[in-house]
Design a protein around this nucleic acid. Structure first.
Length: 364
DNA sequence: CATACGTGGGG
DNA sequence: TCCCCAAGTAT
């Protein structure tokens, strides 16, 4: 039995992997990302949660604004939920924001306001799973914990030729074992950043820059010309379609126009955010309007709003009704949203656009 | 194990 | 137009 090819990394001997990666990182790694400045557990935590399923370029401005307002875990815990969601508006996956604040409050109660040091305690916080917990402890404290995000999955699947759908438990298990085997005891923070950087920059999904990659000589996919086939694809169901009628109830008050919004239930789509009441049909919307707000002075159909989600397309049909204001400005789950001086609440992206159009139409 | 959860960008 | 994906987690 001959000795294994020295250039071929294996799960048993992936040492060359980390060394090559770190050497590349020292020359080409990213070091100027906002959360890399003063990488406290709190700052790294917020960044990692924002970065879940979200690209770096999208996160950066949100992170800056969020940290300016909530500089500490205590500030986040003490804030009204609406303000947290307001700063999350447009970022998506709003359960992340709700969980972030819930976790901050949990840390205050159970850990005296100090971000927990033990992996199990970190893992028990809402919104923090295995990869995020590992990333926080590795990046903020240099502890050796393997991560497995989209970047790492892609790098490992290609370099080690791990076939199959990464969504399946079996392949996921192989990827985790490989990630554990590759993570070195020394320079854990740099390594963690490095493997994400490699996946995000050179080892991209569409056009990997193998010519500049430090792994090409070892890479099973590159050596076989199979970069496009790894990692395996997850077959996804065709996108469905939903539609709803939006009741845009506009108050008749001259000089201070407002529309009625309701807090959406959580969990659920846009949970905790505010949007106009939704109905299956215009008839249902009008019936509700007469019951809750009185007979509208007029009703006007506006242009439908199309919005694409990951798994479905949503068509919102706005029905604008003019009515006399009959209720308090703010209740627990209902508010009149002033177009002039709006309260700071979370708004779904399509609703934010709609409100922008309504506000502009007043000027015309 | 499959599905829900947002949004913007790329091919 | 349509599919895929991006620093995943919760149920």
């Amino acid at each position: 039995m001959s000795a294994p090819d020295a250039a071929t990394p294996t799960a048993a001997d992936p040492a060359g992997f980390a060394e090559r990666l770190l050497r590349w990182f020292d020359r080409h790694g990213r070091t100027q990302l906002p959360w890399q400045r003063d990488p406290t557990p709190y700052r790294v935590w917020v960044s990692e949660v924002m970065l879940q399923q979200t690209q770096v370029a999208t996160v950066i401005p949100y992170f800056e604004t969020f940290m300016a307002r909530f500089a500490t875990l205590q500030a986040l815990a003490a804030a009204p939920q609406d303000e947290v969601l307001h700063l999350w508006t447009g970022l998506g996956y709003y359960a992340r924001a709700r969980n972030l604040q819930a976790a901050a409050r949990q840390i205050l109660e159970r850990h005296g306001g100090e971000f927990p040091a033990a992996l199990d305690d970190v893992l028990s916080l809402p919104g923090i799973g295995r990869s995020t917990a590992a990333a926080i402890l590795a990046l903020s404290k240099g502890e050796r914990h393997a991560i497995l995000d989209g970047n790492v999955k892609r790098v490992l699947a290609r370099v080690f030729g791990i076939e199959g759908d990464p969504g399946s438990a079996e392949v996921l298990g192989r990827l985790w074992r490989q990630a554990e085997a590759c993570t070195p005891p020394q320079r854990a923070a740099a390594y963690t950043q490095a493997i994400m950087d490699l996946g995000a920059t050179l080892c991209s999904r569409a056009r990997p820059a193998c010519a500049r990659c430090p792994m090409t000589a070892l890479c099973v996919a590159a050596r076989a010309g199979r970069q496009a086939e790894l990692p395996g694809r997850k077959k996804r169901a065709r996108r469905g379609r939903r539609e709803a009628t939006l009741l845009i109830a506009e108050s008749g008050t001259a000089g201070s126009r407002a529309i009625l919004l309701e807090r959406r239930p959580s969990p659920g789509l846009w949970g905790g955010l505010w949007a106009p009441p939704q109905f299956a049909s215009a008839e249902e919307a009008l019936a509700w309007c007469r019951r809750e707000l009185g007979e509208p002075a007029q009703a006007l159909r506006l242009e439908p709003i199309e919005h694409a989600f990951t798994h479905f397309d949503l068509t919102l049909k706005p029905l604008k009704v003019r009515c006399a204001r009959a209720r308090a400005v703010r209740e627990a789950d209902r508010l009149w949203y002033e177009l002039g001086a709006p309260p700071k609440v979370g708004l779904p992206q399509p609703i934010r656009r709609l409100i922008g159009l309504l506000a502009a139409s007043a000027i015309a």
